[in-house]
């Protein structure tokens, strides 16, 4: 019983944070048709911003969240402008997915190397956003984890509202569904693409603040979240927001169950094993469809 509760709690926490990081990748894939390999860097940068605000400047968590959001928004926009936008006009002449996979990966290499130069290879402890914990049926749930889950869920909800209700949110979905038609409506794609990537990066940056507090800030702190987000988006089917959400919690569950039952070291191999199986039987993920990866 207590194992089940532990698994469920952990599923909620892990699934929410995966969802937050992965939903940005889905947003980018749906709109720009690229797999953004720099998303992990944004998690890493979010962690360092949190460390800078909370430890160096000794300021409070809200400032850290806002600063991380702003910093990764700007860097995400910048990444799009240098690694994707210049290729946009040649979209049809090249293997756009592969080329942007490589260029965003190149940016990620540079970001983590720069972080290594600036902050050094050692892990930096980030204090929890909130301290204390609550007990649920005998299982400890730290406020930090709870805050992480709640913030992630709130942000994902806010993203959903933004996409459903606002002018720019509708424009993002319109571009994802029919680029030509959206342009004839007057949607400035030259501005919309970088902003979309900025927004997605900012979500990962927020995730980075929590992950940094959960673990630590380090130049490689984004690698694992990137892999996990990749697994989630592909498991859920690229470009499908609802698929991403299901997949985030499914992956969170698999991982939690693996941690609780067979131990920490086995979690990633189990995940990869599951992915191998899923891709063998469902080549486009749970909800994906190659021809209509739409938001």
């Amino acid at each position: 019983m207590s194992q089940i509760v532990a698994i469920l709690i952990s599923t909620l926490v892990l699934g929410s944070i995966y969802g937050l990081v992965a939903i940005g990748m889905t947003l980018i894939y749906g709109t720009l048709r690229i797999l953004d390999m720099s998303q992990g860097s944004m998690v890493m940068i979010g962690g360092f911003v949190a460390w800078g605000v909370l430890v160096v400047a000794n300021s409070d968590p809200v400032v850290a969240l806002v600063a991380a959001f702003a910093a990764t928004f700007v860097l995400g926009t910048f990444t799009q402008l240098i690694s994707v936008q210049p290729l946009m006009s040649r979209r049809s002449d090249l293997d756009f997915e592969m080329v942007t996979f490589i260029t965003t990966f190149a940016v990620a290499i540079v970001f983590s190397n720069l972080a290594l130069q600036i902050f050094g290879p050692f892990q930096k402890d980030v204090p929890p956003v909130i301290s204390g914990s609550v007990s649920i049926i005998g299982q400890n749930l730290s406020y930090q984890s709870l805050a992480m889950a709640v913030t992630s869920i709130v942000l994902m909800g806010a993203l959903g509202l933004f996409l459903a209700r606002t002018r720019w949110g509708l424009a993002i979905r319109a571009v994802a569904q029919d680029l030509d038609a959206a342009r004839t409506m007057g949607v400035p794609v030259g501005r919309l693409y970088p902003l979309t990537m900025g927004l997605a990066s900012a979500l990962a940056g927020i995730g980075g603040v929590f992950l940094g507090a959960q673990f630590f800030a380090s130049p490689t702190a984004g690698d694992l979240p990137l892999l996990e987000a990749l697994i989630v988006v592909i498991f859920g089917g690229l470009g499908s927001l609802s698929g991403t959400l299901y997949a985030a919690y499914a992956i969170g569950f698999i991982q939690s169950a693996a941690i609780v039952t067979i131990g920490e070291t086995w979690t990633l191999p189990v995940l990869y094993g599951v992915i191998l199986l899923v891709l063998i039987f469902r080549p486009y993920g749970l909800r994906g469809n190659p021809s209509e990866a739409r938001l």
Binding site: I82, S83, P86, L87, R90, D93, L94, V99, I102, T103, A106, V107, A108, I109, V110, S112, N113, L114, L116, Q117
Partner: peptide
């Protein structure tokens, strides 16, 4: 050794974008 990867990443980016 510290900047090796930064430089490689930058070269990679420039080549892919400007030298198809």
């Amino acid at each position: 050794p510290g900047v090796q990867l930064s430089i490689l990443g930058t070269i990679l980016l420039i080549i892919v974008v400007f030298v198809p």
